[in-house]
Amino acid sequence: MAKNLTRMVVTALVTFIMAAFLLGVFAGYNGIEKAEALSRFSWVPLTACIIGGIIGFAIAIVWWKRADEAVREAHKWAWYWGGSVGLIVPAVILGMSILGIELLPDAYVASTGLSGPASGILITLLPMFAGYLVAWAVWWLRHR
């Protein structure tokens, strides 16, 4: 069962990559500019996100079922503690902005070229991911 699922996931991933490559070749050959391509093919990013999410979730399920108990415990511990500690950063930024203290100047936010929601997502996810990596490393160092 898992072997067939893995084969299906790999086949879907290769098919998706080839379709994206061919779409890029088509757009480049026809001289379609980036703005025009985004308006003509606006369904492509949404479809890519949906397919990528499904493939990633399927791969994660197969990987999790094959992982041993130590790996599972390390990831659960790192997810809880690293993610929880990582949430302190966006919480502090939010609290300070509510109090009127700007930790991220407008010039910095404007220079990144990201929209407000994209900046908020990055400000939330990056510290959580960094905390996860640190907690994962600490778990493995403590359980050697």
Rank of each mutant, 00 (worst) to 15 (best):
E33V: 08
V89R: 00
K34E: 15
M128H: 02
L5W: 07
P117F: 03
L23G: 11
R40M: 13
I93C: 01
A58M: 14
A48M: 10
I17L: 13
L114Y: 03
V92Q: 00
R144Q: 15
P105K: 01
L94M: 12
M96N: 03
V109L: 08
L141C: 14
V134L: 06
M128L: 12
L46A: 15
A91V: 08
V138H: 00
A27V: 05
P90L: 03
W64V: 00
R66I: 03
E33S: 13
G95Y: 06
Y132G: 04
L122Y: 08
W64G: 01
L22E: 09
H75V: 12
P45M: 12
S39Q: 14
V14W: 08
L133N: 09
A60L: 06
I59Y: 08
V10P: 10
T124R: 00
S42T: 12
W63G: 03
M128Y: 00
V71S: 15
W81T: 03
T47A: 15
L38D: 09
T112N: 07
L46N: 11
E33Q: 11
V14C: 08
F21V: 10
V10Q: 04
G131Q: 03
I98N: 11
A118W: 00
Y29C: 09
V10S: 06
S115L: 05
A110S: 09
W81M: 01
A107Q: 10
E102H: 09
Y80W: 04
L126F: 03
G120I: 06
Y108E: 08
P45K: 12
V62R: 01
A135E: 01
L99E: 02
Y132A: 03
